[in-house]
Structures are given as C-alpha cells and as structure tokens.
Computed example of a mutant assay.
Amino acid sequence: MAIRILRILIWAIVWFVIISLALVAIYRFVPVPVTATMLMDENGMTKDWEPLSRIDRNMVSAVIAGEDGKFCSHAGFDREAIEQAMESNAKGGRIRGGSTISQQTAKNVFLWQGGGYFRKGLEAWFTFLIEKLWGKRRIMEVYLNVAETGIGTYGVEAGAQRYFDHSAARLSRTEAARMAAALPLPKERRVVSPTGFTRRYGNTIARRIGIVRRDGLDACVYD
C-alpha cells in the first residue's frame, strides 16, 4: 500500500513538473489570456494586453522604483527585502511584502492570491522557472499586463485608459508613479487625486524614476 501511494505521489510530481514547464514555455511567447485572480474577481475584469514596446518606459521605471529596485540584479528573490519586510511586520509597522516583481508575476499568472507555505512553495518554483525561461524583459511585460491596477481592472493599458483616458504608451512620470503607488492595494488606493500615504508614496516614486534611469536599474528590460 505504501509503495503504491509513493508511486502515485512520484507520478503526480512528474506530471506537475511537465505541465508547469509546458505552461511557462507557452507563455514565453503567447499573451496570458486570463488568470485565477481575474476569474475570481466579483467585479468582473477589464484588460487590454499590450507588448512592452507600446508601454511607456516611465511605467517600467516606476514599478521598479516602487516595487523592486533590484529587479535587474537579483535572480528572482531579494533576500534582504524579505528580511526587512519580516522585521517591519514583526514590529507592528505598516504591513509590507518582500516579494519581487518576478515573484508577483509567478503568483499572478500561475497561482492564486493568499498566503500559506504551500502556495509560497509553488510561487518559488514558478519564479525560478520564469527567471530561467523568460528573462527579465518578458517578466516585466507579463507583469505589466496582468497586475491588478484597480477594481476589476488588469494591466497598465486598461489602467491608463480608465484613469487618464489615453494609452499606456503616453504615461507621464506622475501618472506612472501614481499607478505604481496603488499597485500593492489596487482596490483601496486612489490613482486619480490620491491623498495621504498614496500621494506621498507616488511623489516619492516619481522622484525615484530619475534615479532608476540614471543608475540603469531598468537596463535589463531594454538591453
């Protein structure tokens, strides 16, 4: 009986690896049609896939400035950011995450929202795969197309159209920074006429965009 269970477990793992590799390989070239988060959104979904070439560089720089300053230098995981997030949360400060853009992309595309060690383990696996098979440019392209940018709104193109009535190809620094500032809590933070922390954080991101460009922190996306 134990041997039979072991065989079933081994085959389950083998098939999981095969299927996950196949999905990652397909999405290396094909736009992601839908995600679990989109399907479970009770507000419906509005999305418009755009290639990275039609998304303003301000948006790329803004999410790096706001979400993952080491995007071009890490291999999918930022240990220092994770440790800082754990320390901040343990002290009862503002709740923050330590996930990189790569981790967020893996979660958004292949998994579901929420915590738990099992999902985190799967997230690590898919993060490893997309870092190896996609590369930074594709990871950024997918992230900017599947990230939730508002209530029932997914991707920066749909967000730009909703908030600013123009395409993501024309986002100014201020507009990109405000969208990036709302990404951690897109259902709660206002992109248009933000107040309080969201406004201050957006202004900080707008200033950091220049640093991202100056120091080449987004270079891996465009090289």
Score class of each variant (00 low, 15 high):
residue 138 R to D: 14
residue 79 R to Q: 02
residue 99 S to H: 07
residue 107 K to E: 07
residue 188 E to R: 10
residue 215 D to Q: 14
residue 85 A to G: 05
residue 215 D to A: 13
residue 124 A to Q: 04
residue 26 I to F: 12
residue 90 A to T: 08
residue 204 T to K: 08
residue 196 G to I: 06
residue 223 D to A: 12
residue 73 S to F: 11
residue 22 A to R: 14
residue 17 V to L: 13
residue 20 S to L: 10
residue 193 S to H: 13
residue 25 A to K: 05
residue 148 E to C: 01
residue 11 W to G: 04
residue 188 E to L: 09
residue 174 T to E: 15
residue 88 S to F: 00
residue 199 R to I: 00
residue 56 D to I: 03
residue 182 A to E: 00
residue 184 P to Q: 02
residue 209 I to C: 07
residue 10 I to K: 06
residue 197 F to N: 03
residue 161 Q to I: 05
residue 210 G to M: 03
residue 183 L to G: 01
residue 75 A to R: 10
residue 160 A to Y: 01
residue 185 L to R: 08
residue 176 A to K: 02
residue 217 L to N: 13
residue 59 M to I: 06
residue 190 R to S: 13
residue 128 F to E: 05
residue 164 F to C: 00
residue 42 E to L: 15
residue 119 R to C: 09
residue 86 M to H: 14
residue 84 Q to S: 10
residue 188 E to D: 11
residue 197 F to S: 03
residue 65 A to T: 11
residue 175 E to C: 00
residue 76 G to Y: 04
residue 186 P to L: 09
residue 181 A to Q: 02
residue 211 I to L: 15
residue 187 K to M: 07
residue 147 A to L: 12
residue 5 I to A: 07
residue 119 R to P: 06
residue 18 I to R: 05
residue 19 I to Y: 08
residue 38 M to T: 06
residue 5 I to H: 04
residue 29 F to N: 12
residue 125 W to V: 15
residue 17 V to R: 00
residue 208 R to S: 15
residue 125 W to L: 15
residue 11 W to N: 07
residue 222 Y to K: 12
residue 165 D to I: 06
residue 186 P to C: 08
residue 69 G to N: 12
residue 151 I to F: 01
residue 151 I to S: 04
residue 207 R to T: 10
residue 206 A to K: 06
residue 191 V to K: 10
residue 120 K to Y: 14
residue 212 V to H: 08
residue 48 D to M: 06
residue 1 M to V: 08
residue 72 C to S: 10
residue 81 A to H: 12
residue 144 L to S: 06
residue 146 V to K: 07
residue 118 F to R: 13
residue 62 A to H: 13
residue 77 F to R: 13
residue 206 A to D: 12
residue 189 R to G: 01
residue 57 R to N: 11
residue 101 I to R: 06
residue 153 T to G: 00
residue 197 F to M: 01
residue 1 M to C: 09
residue 32 V to A: 06
